[in-house]
Simulated assay, not measured.
Amino acid sequence: MSQVDREMLSSKIGRRSFLKMAALSSAVGASGLIASANVTREATSQELSNPYPNSKKVKTVCTACSVGCGIIAEVENGVWVRQEVAQDHPISLGGHCCKGSDMVDMVRSAVRLKYPMVKENGEWKRISYNEALDRIAEQLNKYQKENPEQVMFLGSAKMSNEQCYYIRKFGAFFGTNNVDHQARI
């Protein structure tokens, strides 16, 4: 027996290495069982053609940024269920970026904010849009009277050039030069 063979036989396997290898072998074994168990089936031709039989397709524009790529939103009972790119759209020419292709998932997200909320006494409470706007206006008025430079206005990639101009003008009328653009918002 060579020196290398003796060293390999005498080396110990640590607990962490053993657990990693055990977990890996379990995962490989389980995936092999699932793959051979026929738990999936081929989609039927009807499911492939229209899985949402009562839906309608609506041509619209992606709102992920200000480019305005075309999408075809599929809507069922007022709910956006899926989307595809608009092949004939003059801006996107049938293309889609990763943000735009994920818009439907963002809209359908369980953690999406759907109405104004305020935290009172450590608990989130739903408020009306009018109450939310009144609270915002009250705070902005307070800041403008105290020191308008403590406020900053941010634009985003969803805004057109004209909208960015209006944000800049609004900031100037408010009394601050703190205006910026953040493309990732």
Rank of each mutant, 00 (worst) to 15 (best):
M1P: 03
V4P: 00
K12G: 04
I13F: 00
R15P: 12
K20N: 10
K20H: 04
M21Q: 14
A23W: 01
G29K: 01
G32R: 01
A37D: 14
V39A: 08
V39C: 12
T40F: 15
E42T: 13
E42H: 15
Q46G: 08
S49F: 03
P51Q: 11
K56R: 11
K56V: 09
V58A: 00
K59L: 07
T63Y: 03
T63R: 11
A64N: 14
C69D: 00
C69G: 04
G70C: 05
A73P: 02
E74I: 15
V75K: 01
V75E: 03
V81G: 09
Q83T: 08
Q83D: 09
D88T: 14
P90K: 15
L93F: 05
H96Y: 12
D102W: 05
D105W: 03
R108E: 03
Y115A: 14
Y115P: 03
M117H: 09
M117F: 06
K119G: 03
K119V: 11
K125R: 15
I127E: 01
Y129D: 06
Y129E: 12
D134H: 13
I136H: 05
Q139N: 12
N141S: 10
N141T: 09
K142E: 01
N147F: 02
V151R: 15
M152L: 10
M152D: 00
G155A: 13
G155C: 09
A157R: 11
A157P: 11
M159F: 13
N161C: 06
C164I: 10
I167C: 06
K169I: 02
K169N: 07
K169C: 01
F170R: 09
F174W: 06
N177G: 14
D180F: 02
A183H: 07
